[in-house]
Design a protein around this nucleic acid. Structure first.
Ligand SMILES: [Mn+2]
Ligand SMILES: [Mn+2]
Ligand SMILES: [Zn+2]
Ligand SMILES: [Zn+2]
Lengths: 147, 147
DNA sequence: AAACTAAATTATAAGCATTCTAATGTAAGA
DNA sequence: TCTTACATTAGAATGCTTATAATTTAGTTT
């Protein structure tokens, strides 16, 4: 069984444990998310599934994403004024985003505890967490620029 | 002359140099921004000025904020699904945000070059910049929680 | 297998921040 | 003072997301 398939099975088990019904639409949204490496938007998921489910409402996609969020199966990524993106990788990781094409790529970095600690000292806040994104140009767009 | 007053004068000079007309509304939006420490939203600016300019359109606030952004007089801060906030402090600094009351406080930290460099190596991106926000509970809200 | 019922789906309306449009007004130079 | 390009205004439009209410259905109970 591939990693995405395994994650899907685990997610389905978690949903059942939480008393959430497994509908065909819900299953499809979850399956698409688990197999996607692209941090898709709600609308991208909706469009990707419209062949399989021509009558599915966009509200169903949003409803299900909210269910998955509440249970902790996915993360919501919010960037500026555009639409939210959804990440089925819930382990600790950061994102680097291409300024040209918008591609979002995972990367790991040993936690920024020092920053949190300094912020706490300087501001008197009781710090809970942080968010970090790095921006730049991806390899594909660097190549495009050369030609 | 206070620091906000001085920044306002400098900003007005920059605007004139760029061939941008100084209208009463534009002046008021700029003055409010420069004197505010609160990273206000467009709507907060609009409401703060409605006594002085009862007929001002909310579009005027947005139009002027865009002009200021284009010239580099202010920074736009985008957080999740809520509305943009605007920061007249264009020098390098980070923000820490209260989970309870939403307060946004500036803090400084020696740049995160190492993170940018590692991200570059691992992903092959050509890195341009990054964003970081720290979240937690502010001192006021910590006090409130005690009582 | 049929009935039941709470939950899910659907189509559509509504909400909110932001931008667009077109008419009117005005800052600043000639 | 005249001129005109730029700015403001009110309101419509847009894009993403959530709410509503009717219909359908997953999963349990009989
Ligand atoms: Mn990710
Ligand atoms: Mn700031
Ligand atoms: Zn790219
Ligand atoms: Zn607070």
């Amino acid at each position: 069984m591939t990693v995405p398939e395994q994650r899907l099975q685990e997610a389905l088990t978690t949903l059942k444990k939480s008393g959430v019904r497994i509908t065909p639409q819900r299953h499809a949204v979850l399956e698409y998310l688990m197999q996607s490496m692209k941090h898709p938007t709600a609308d991208e998921i909706y469009k990707a599934l419209e062949d399989k489910f021509p009558n599915m409402s966009v509200a169903t996609v949003y409803n299900n994403l909210r269910v998955f969020l509440d249970i902790g199966l996915v993360r919501e990524l919010t960037y500026g004024d555009s639409s939210s993106r959804f990440d089925c990788n819930t382990s600790d990781h950061y994102h680097i985003i291409c300024d040209e094409c918008g591609k979002i790529v995972d990367f790991h970095y040993p936690s920024l505890n020092e920053v949190e600690q300094l912020a706490e000292q300087v501001t008197g806040f009781d710090v809970s967490n942080h968010r970090l994104e790095v921006y730049g140009t991806c390899e594909d767009c660097q190549q495009m620029a050369k030609h």
